[in-house]
Write a protein that binds this DNA or RNA. Structure first.
Length: 996
RNA sequence: GCCUCUGUGGUGGAAUUGGUAGACACGCAGGACUUAAAAUCCUGUGACCUCAACAGUCGUGCGGGUUCAAGUCCCGCCGGAGGUACCA
């Protein structure tokens, strides 16, 4: 076989160093610099620097078995650009990475395979690390953290103990050691519900006691009382129980009534659980939002989740009883519109107040309501259900009897679990009243309320005794005054935020450092931490339904006291990890105070918006707590936060012909119809071919084809929706017996059989935006891209795709443009065929290009507009190529500009320019306005706002001079059509507009 | 329903304080180099009208408004994405 000499030479070159110099060989370059960075650790953050500090943090990943796909690095690349940019700008940068390595998937996998979760976690981490390294991130790996490592979770447990030993003192509005509460009990006792030291929105009645009584309480009693105040506590509450996962879930882990992970049904269940009293911080979590630069949508989510509402509590005396029902309302102005009271099916008085006649009906209803799953309950929200208890309350102002109903539209967990129903002015009450034929009263002026409630807080009160004539807002005030005066209740602020359930009936999580002695929970002494996760024979609950940790043999504190068997939830470790990075190896403290004082908090935090009401709320809570207790100096974890958009998958579908039409003239042939342009052509293919695929560009939906789109191409075998037949057949061998119909013929077993109509042999697929998943063959890993185009191209391309915060589908259609750009950059240094850089002084246009770029790039980075900086680099390199510029004075600063984005190629060329050290710490080029000053400005001349022509004028002309020259211009006369301009608007160096 | 974001060529997207809409890139079309392909380079490319040029008309989801001038500001609609939902 003849072998062309040229190709032969090429291969020779490829193996010689000479070849490497000629072409941009990303593989060698990237391997080389990744190794150097690994060996020399240039990105180690300095704990004692005199430089200003800058802390850039990514939300650390959960190391799943699937590895990273191209969506993960999007935020990491942006933060890495920021980190590198700040180093150039003279900052001491902390840019760490770690793993959120406790979690359900590893445990589920362990249940299926018996493989210990620690083992799979370790493997997954190794894979993640390998993938991350290939992208060239400037992480300080010496500070890596893993939440599942005992040296890390020792401190998670330590923080748990601090929370247990603290309470929230509303007098000082901060968390304090529990001792200060005990002191109050010893001197003042506790005055019951009206006492101002009540915390955490305890709705339960807690009996008052005197200092003497406190002194006489036994240990158990004292423990029980204190439990109502501790910031982490063991309490009975309705929880989200997920039978399929065998564990409880926090509110943010439940979406649409099913578990966020796995989508399993969730029920409400009364259980004794460890919880975090985040509600104590509700107001401060709300207020803090005004001090941080986070996206508005995220802050809104948190505000809504916290759900502050102002209103009043109000007691209704139950008829023929000394009990009273307490409700919470934000509309006390409508008190005269109350036509019944509704209580939740779980309300503690349900049994007590129900009359004998109604007993059966109520019991039936309550049982049904309680057994309904959360999903069912939420699904038919508009479906009204309820039952009359037979009991009445006495209206405190009118003295009339008011019926008490049970209805599941009232939630047990919010407020008091009871509402005063005002159907005239509340949609839900209205629905209920209509359904059961209860009276509807109008007490605010407005549209008639019989058919539809009038909920707006506007209008004058009517039919309301002493409130008559008042505007709603004034009436609310007046009503509260009156209620307080008569001792019926008091003005009150409620929050939707619930305490966070903290225990999980699961294995793969931090053990809770608690043991039980005589039925009293005790936290372990701090110096005995960590409480290491014990080995178990199976990762399943015990036969008695106890959590997996109950299986651990001889696992008892001091050999005799049972440990707590639940473990901490996934968000425990991530609620303080930003602090651990400051001092990752410390075994004396979670972090040295000196270092937390130095690093303060995160300057830029990048991550997904899905953590809005979970992680991002908890981490703020813990930060505020640690601040209150004096452990750290800041009370917010991150000053600025950016949500990177999600990257969706782009599938490429192959259209499959279903209809078979035999050729009547030849029974062995099958007829194929092809639109070539608008002409319908008939062609034949052998009938024996079973699978027939058809290129998307010749499909005409009105044609005789029936086709399906159930077949996927592997996206790696498609570029710009053109299928690479050869690669496809290598990947999916079965299809070698299939026909791929194109405009001009068809492919069969990688051979093209022409129809002799001069049509194309390109086979096109149909792209579709879908979630990335294995079954859709549209998962793209960063490794594939690094292998094919290099890490620098991947980094640039992910940024080039569009604004960081916007969600977008991943497709590689534009990637050749970015890779071409890097080649073009490289060629600037090789214009003569070898590496040559001129030491000559740069020309004016060269300096203009450089400084224009410096200005743009600096502005782009400062406003996180990374996509536009890639465009600006392209413009710069295009211009320098046109100018044939190879001057050191231009190219050197350009490399520094580019190095945050494409660090490998920047380092390589920097070294070739003769520098010894890394480019990573070279000073960022300073912008000099002088180079952009032009003698002339090309004015757009518009008439009535419509741009007509350009006129080049000296840039320093006055407005009068400009007007004179413009009016004299030949083209101006043409557009004036002999008319006299009414007005001439001149904005120097911007625009001229002539108004006719 | 409510909240937040969003709507610009065939495609991804630019236009930072109201001032030349469509930068940059992909794709497409044509050309150069090549036996050929790849790679690379050059030219053109919003739509309509025109053989073409010059010119012209339209054009940033729709309808109004403010302004010398609106993708950008205001009012009212419509579509898309995400979050959230008996929270009294």
């Amino acid at each position: 076989m003849p072998f062309p000499l040229k190709s032969y030479l090429c291969i020779l070159y490829k193996n010689s160093t000479f070849y490497d110099y000629m072409e941009y060989n990303f593989k060698d370059i990237e391997n080389k610099w990744q190794k150097i960075w690994k060996d020399t650790k240039p990105f180690k953050a300095d704990n004692t620097s005199t430089k200003p500090k800058y802390y850039v943090l990514d939300m650390f990943p959960y190391p799943s078995g699937a590895g990273l796909h191209v969506g993960h690095p999007l935020g990491y690349i942006a933060s890495d650009i920021m980190a590198r940019y700040k180093r150039h700008k003279g900052f001491n940068v902390l840019h760490p990475m770690g793993y959120d390595s406790f979690g359900l998937p590893a445990e589920q996998y362990a249940i299926q395979t018996g493989q210990h979760p620690a083992v799979t976690t370790e493997q997954n981490i190794a894979r993640y690390r390998e993938q991350l390294d290939k992208i060239g991130f400037s992480f300080d790996w010496d500070r890596e953290v893993r939440t599942s490592d005992p040296s890390y979770y020792k401190w998670t447990q330590w923080i748990f103990i601090q929370l247990f030993n603290s309470w929230y003192n509303p007098r000082n509005n901060k968390a304090e050691p529990i001792e200060s509460l005990i002191k109050i009990f010893e001197t003042e006792g506790f005055k019951g519900l009206t006492h101002d030291i009540l915390t955490g929105d305890i709705e339960k009645e807690l009996e008052a006691f005197t200092p003497e009584q406190w002194k006489n309480f036994d240990e158990k009693k004292r423990s029980d009382v204190l439990m109502n105040f501790r910031l982490t506590y063991l309490g009975e509450a309705y929880v989200n129980w997920c039978p399929a996962l065998g564990t409880v879930l926090a509110n943010d882990e439940v979406k649409d009534g099913v578990s966020e992970r796995g989508g399993h049904p969730v029920e409400r269940k009364l259980m004794k659980q460890w919880s975090m009293r985040i509600t104590a911080y509700a107001q401060r979590l709300l207020d803090g939002l005004d001090t941080i630069d986070w996206t508005e949508s995220l802050k809104e989510s948190q505000r809504y989740w916290i759900g502050r509402s102002e209103g009043t509590s109000l007691k209704f005396q139950i008829e023929n009883s000394d009990l009273h029902l307490e409700v919470f309302t934000t509309r006390p102005d409508t008190i005269f519109g109350v036509s019944f009271i509704t209580i939740a099916p779980e309300h503690e008085y349900v049994d007590t107040i129900t009359t004998a006649e109604q007993k059966a009906a109520v019991l039936d209803y309550v049982t049904k309501a309680k057994n309904r799953s959360e999903r069912e309950r939420q699904a038919d929200v508009t479906k009204v259900s309820g039952v009359f208890t037979g009991a009445y309350v006495i209206h405190p102002f009118t003295g009339k009897k008011v019926q008490i109903w049970v209805g599941d539209y009232v939630l047990a967990g919010y407020g008091t679990g009871a509402v005063m129903a005002v159907p005239g002015h509340d949609e839900r009450d209205h629905r209920f009243a209509k359904h059961f034929g209860l009276p509807i009263l109008q007490v605010v002026e407005g549209p008639d309320v019989q058919e539809q409630s009038y909920d707006a807080k506007e209008g004058k009160c009517i039919n309301s005794d002493f409130l008559n004539g008042l505007e709603v807002k004034a009436a609310i005030k007046k009503a509260i005054e009156e209620i307080e005066k008569r001792n019926l209740g008091k003005g009150k602020t409620n929050y939707r935020l619930r305490d966070a359930v903290f225990g999980r009936q699961r294995y793969w999580g931090e053990p809770i450092p608690v043991y039980y002695k005589d039925g009293i929970p005790h936290v372990m002494p701090e110096n005995e931490l960590p409480l290491v996760l014990p080995e178990v024979d199976k990762f399943l609950p015990t036969e008695d339904g106890e959590p997996p940790l109950a299986r651990a043999k001889d696992w008892k504190y001091k050999g005799q006291y049972d440990y707590e068997w639940t473990t901490m939830p996934g968000w425990a470790g991530s609620s303080w990890y930003f602090l651990r990075y400051m001092d990752a190896k410390n075994d004396k403290a979670f972090a040295d105070k000196k270092l937390t004082d130095y690093w303060q908090n995160v300057d830029l935090y990048i991550g997904g918006s899905e953590h809005a009401t979970g992680h991002l709320l908890y981490v703020r809570f813990w930060t505020k707590f640690l601040f209150d207790r004096g452990f750290i100096a800041v009370d917010e974890p991150a000053k600025k936060l950016i949500n990177q958009g999600m990257i969706q998958g782009m599938s490429e579908k192959i259209n499959r012909l279903i209809s078979v039409e035999k050729n009547p003239d030849d029974n062995n042939k099958r007829l194929i119809y092809i639109y070539k342009g608008s002409v319908l052509e008939e062609h034949n293919i052998p009938l024996a071919i079973k699978n027939v695929f058809i290129s998307s560009d010749i499909i005409d939906k009105s044609s005789k084809f029936d086709y399906s789109t159930d077949k996927y191409a592997n996206v790696n075998n498609v570029s710009n929706s053109v299928l690479d037949i050869k690669k496809h057949l290598e990947w999916w061998n079965e299809d070698s017996a299939a026909a791929f119909i194109c405009e001009g013929g068809y492919w069969l077993n990688n051979e093209f059989i022409s129809f002799n109509n001069n049509g194309s042999n390109i086979f096109k697929t149909t792209p579709e935006v879908e979630k990335m998943s294995k079954s859709k063959h549209n998962v793209q890993t960063p490794d594939d891209i690094c292998e094919k185009f290099g890490a620098d191209t991947l980094r640039l391309y992910e940024m080039f795709l569009g604004p960081l915060e916007q969600s977008k589908p991943w497709n590689t259609n534009g990637i050749t443009g970015v890779s071409g750009f890097l080649k073009k950059l490289w060629r600037l240094f090789y214009q003569t065929g070898s590496f040559v850089v001129s030491e000559d002084a740069p020309t004016k246009p060269e300096l203009k290009t450089l400084h224009k770029t410096i200005k743009k790039i600096t502005e782009d980075i400062e406003r996180f507009s990374f996509n536009t900086s890639v465009s600006n680099f392209m413009i710069c390199v295009n211009e320098l190529s046109d100018l044939k510029c190879n001057k050191r004075a231009i190219l050197e600063p350009l490399l520094v500009l580019i190095s945050p984005y494409a660090p490998h190629v920047a380092e390589e060329l920097w070294e070739k320019l003769g520098h010894k050290g890394s480019i990573a710490f070279a000073a960022f080029p300073e912008f000099n306005e002088a180079h952009l000053v032009e003698d002339n400005f090309n004015y757009p001349i518009s008439f009535n706002g419509k741009m007509r022509f350009n006129l080049e004028l000296a840039a320093n002309l006055s407005v009068q001079e400009i007007e004179k020259l413009v009016m004299e211009a030949e083209q101006t006369h043409k557009y004036l059509e002999g008319k006299q301009p009414k007005k001439v608007i001149i904005v120097p160096k911007k625009i001229v507009n002539i108004v006719m």
